[in-house]
Structure formats: structure tokens, C-alpha cells
Amino acid sequence: MTLVNNTDLLNLHGQQQASFRQESTSWMAALVCAVKAKLSGNDFASLFNCDNTQALQTPQQCITMAGKKLSRFSLSLSLASHTSIGVLKHKLRPIFTTSVQPIILITPMVMACPTLTCNKHSLTQELREQDTSQVTLLQGGQCFKNVLVLAGRCSICRTLYWADHERFTQDNGDDVCLYLNDAKYLKVGKSVWVDRLVFRAIVNANYSFHASAAAITKFWHFSFVQPSGVTFKLSRRQV
């Protein structure tokens, strides 16, 4: 993912390779330094095999060797702007990772029933496949379509668990719906859910800037929803 998200650096790296006929460049060395700062000592050392370790004497040699490895790795990912003889093929453009985005499911946070008498009994998936809802999820600045919402039920106390609330029956027969303060996701419409970052940002905008629901709706649509390329529109009522 580091290489895929740094195509501009790979263009500079490829141009310097073509100009000076060298495998490792100062651009790739800078990327290696960033990787080294991210990893701990042992994790960075795992990039080298035994033969490499015996040949490496100085920190600069380590950076050069790792740069060569990343350069060869970029070639195997077809992230090369120049041919092996230094001829420009094409400038690398930003790579959109939509096709490899993770599949997100909205599920209860608990993995076992916390009721004392149930003794941490596991939850069963409550909904049949044809009854499972597909919703739109706003997560940070991203908009995901057709996200599945799953619910769990304890087979002992019959409590129903959702991502944002729990529903159970009291001794007198009344049904009680208990919303969770630490919910990761919140349902804000018939088929719209948001994560904590989104609803925290909306609440803060309302209190900090005294922004109206209509103003927040327009801001969110133009800043996040529209650039994502989806047809979904956040409504004032949902805000």
C-alpha cells in the first residue's frame, strides 16, 4: 500500500534511474527512511535475508539495499514509469483502491450476552439472508453502499443486540430499547448509518459554529459525498 499510494515518488524515482542508470535513488532512499521510522528495529531487519545481513556494514548500506528491494518490488507490481533501458513508458497516475476496499458489516459490538444469568452465552445471527438490510454507511469522509446490517440474539434471555442499541423484555412484559453511548455506528435514517467520526463532526459543527442542519447538509455533500462518486445525498432530516 505504501508503493501504491506514492506514485508521484515512483515517477521521480524512475526518472532519476533513467538519467543516472542506477537502481537505488535518493527518492527511494527517502521512502526507505520513512518505512524504517514506521517499523521497529527487528521489523526493519526482517526485510533482509542472511546473505544481505552479512554484506551490510553501515546504516547507509542498509538504506541502499532496502531501496533496491522496494524498487524491484515496484517493478513486480507494474509500477514502473520507465522501461529497463530507461525509456519513458507513461507517467504513473494516482491509483484508486475502490476495487480492493474492505467489505464492511455493521454488527453488534458484544460477542457474548453480558447478562449475569446467561454466563456469557454466545449470540446467534438473528436475521435470515433475505431479511438482512442493505444500507448506506458514512464512515469518516467515505460513503459505502450496500453495507449489511446484522443483529444477534441470546437464545437464553432472548435479548436482541444491534450495533447501536439492545432490545429486551422486562419481567412485566414491556419491551425496552436501550441505546448505547459507546456505539461505533448510529442509524440516522431508514437505510442510512454513520460512524462516530461523522456524528461527532456534525454535533461539533452545530455547537462550535452554530451551523444549521441545512448548512451542515450542504457542506457534507459537497466535501465528502459528491467527491466519492456515489448518488447518495445526505438529507437535512438525517443531519
Rank of each mutant, 00 (worst) to 15 (best):
M1P: 05
L3G: 06
V4D: 00
N6A: 10
N6T: 12
T7D: 02
N11G: 05
Q16T: 11
A18I: 06
F20M: 06
Q22V: 13
E23N: 03
S24V: 13
S24Y: 06
T25I: 07
T25R: 02
S26V: 07
W27K: 01
W27S: 02
W27M: 04
A29R: 10
A30G: 04
A30D: 09
L31E: 06
V32I: 09
V32F: 01
K38R: 02
D43N: 11
F44W: 12
A45H: 02
A45Y: 03
L47R: 06
F48W: 10
Q54R: 14
A55S: 15
Q57D: 04
Q57C: 08
Q60N: 12
Q61M: 14
T64E: 15
T64A: 10
A66I: 07
S71M: 11
S76K: 12
S78Y: 11
L79S: 04
S81Y: 01
G86R: 11
R93F: 07
P94T: 12
T97F: 02
V100G: 00
I103P: 01
I104R: 12
I104Q: 10
P108I: 05
P108W: 04
M111A: 05
A112E: 11
P114N: 04
T115P: 00
T115N: 11
L116C: 03
L123W: 04
L123V: 05
T124Y: 09
E129N: 15
D131S: 14
T132A: 13
C143A: 14
F144K: 08
F144S: 09
F144Q: 05
F144N: 09
L150I: 07
A151C: 06
G152I: 00
C154T: 00
T159I: 02
T159C: 06
A163T: 09
Q170C: 12
Q170M: 11
N172Y: 03
N172Q: 08
D175Q: 12
V176I: 15
C177E: 10
C177N: 04
L178T: 01
L180D: 05
K184C: 00
V188K: 03
V194T: 07
V194D: 03
R200D: 13
A201H: 09
Y207I: 13
S208Y: 10
F209P: 02
A211G: 08
T217K: 13
W220G: 03
F222P: 00
V225C: 08
V225A: 07
V225S: 02
G229P: 03
G229A: 08
K233T: 14
K233D: 05
R236F: 00
R237T: 08
